[in-house]
Simulated scan of single mutants.
Amino acid sequence: MKEPVYIGPHPAAAPRLEELMRQVALGDQDAFASVYEAVAGPVLGVVRSVLRDRAQSEEVAQEVLVEMWRTAARFREDLGSAMNWVLTLAHRRAVDRVRSVEASAARERRAGLLDRTRAYDEVTEQVETRLEQEQVRRCLRTLTERQRESVTLAYYRGLTYREVAELLTLPLGTVKTRLRDGLIRLRDCLGVSV
């Protein structure tokens, strides 16, 4: 049988990937260059199979190779081959990117929905305000005509007690008494405790 022809050094002379990883863990840049050359293509292939986007795949593949350099000391030969370890890093990083993109898209969708709908608190506040206004109107109808007139001028038109007295041509004390009695009746009708 004929022996195969090798271009470059004989494969038996080249260190195994696992040995190179041990050297990378010690900070050997030449060993890293050899590992990089051996795994860059397969890493990009795994990442592209998950992401299906060329630009993102290249970015994630570079992140994986940098992570491989930083965490080479974590590689344990007794748990599997160096290639499997690196490809596992690649697959996990690609899946993380997919999850991140999906989460970002979901956040944007939720934010878009919130922009199109009124805030719950705003609607509740409007309903409560309308109910309170109706209750005040109902309670105002329980006042005598003179009390209602004095309260309306003082609290809805913003006149002072003296201005109410002048407008109604009544003594100031009489206006104060009507206002006090009217406010007590309103308080009781509205169920407000002092």
Rank of each mutant, 00 (worst) to 15 (best):
Lys2Met: 08
Pro4Ile: 10
Pro4Glu: 10
Pro4Lys: 13
Val5Glu: 13
Val5Arg: 12
Val5Phe: 13
Tyr6Cys: 11
Ile7Phe: 13
Pro9Trp: 01
Pro9Phe: 08
Ala14Arg: 14
Ala14Leu: 15
Arg16Pro: 01
Arg22Ser: 09
Gln23Tyr: 09
Val24Pro: 01
Ala25Asn: 01
Asp28Gly: 06
Asp28Gln: 04
Phe32His: 08
Ser34Leu: 10
Val35Asp: 00
Ala38Lys: 13
Pro42Ser: 11
Val43Ile: 05
Val43Glu: 02
Leu44Thr: 11
Arg52Lys: 15
Arg52Pro: 00
Asp53Cys: 08
Asp53Asn: 15
Ala55Asp: 13
Gln56Thr: 12
Glu58Lys: 05
Ala61Leu: 02
Ala61Thr: 14
Glu67Asn: 12
Trp69Pro: 01
Arg70Glu: 12
Arg70Asn: 10
Arg74Tyr: 04
Arg74Asn: 06
Leu79Trp: 07
Gly80Cys: 05
Ser81His: 04
Ser81Cys: 03
Met83Trp: 02
Met83Asn: 08
Asn84Ile: 10
Leu87Lys: 14
Val98Gly: 00
Val101Glu: 01
Ser104Pro: 00
Arg109Lys: 13
Gly112Thr: 04
Gly112Arg: 10
Leu113Ile: 07
Thr117Asp: 04
Glu125Thr: 13
Glu132Met: 13
Glu134Ala: 15
Leu140Lys: 09
Leu140Arg: 10
Leu143Ile: 08
Leu143Arg: 11
Glu145Phe: 09
Ser150Gln: 00
Val151Ser: 01
Tyr156Arg: 15
Tyr156Cys: 09
Tyr161Val: 14
Val164Phe: 02
Glu166Cys: 00
Leu167Ala: 15
Leu168Glu: 08
Val175Tyr: 02
Thr177His: 12
Thr177Met: 10
Arg178Ala: 03
Leu179Ile: 15
Leu179Trp: 04
Asp181Gln: 14
Asp188Arg: 15
Cys189Val: 05
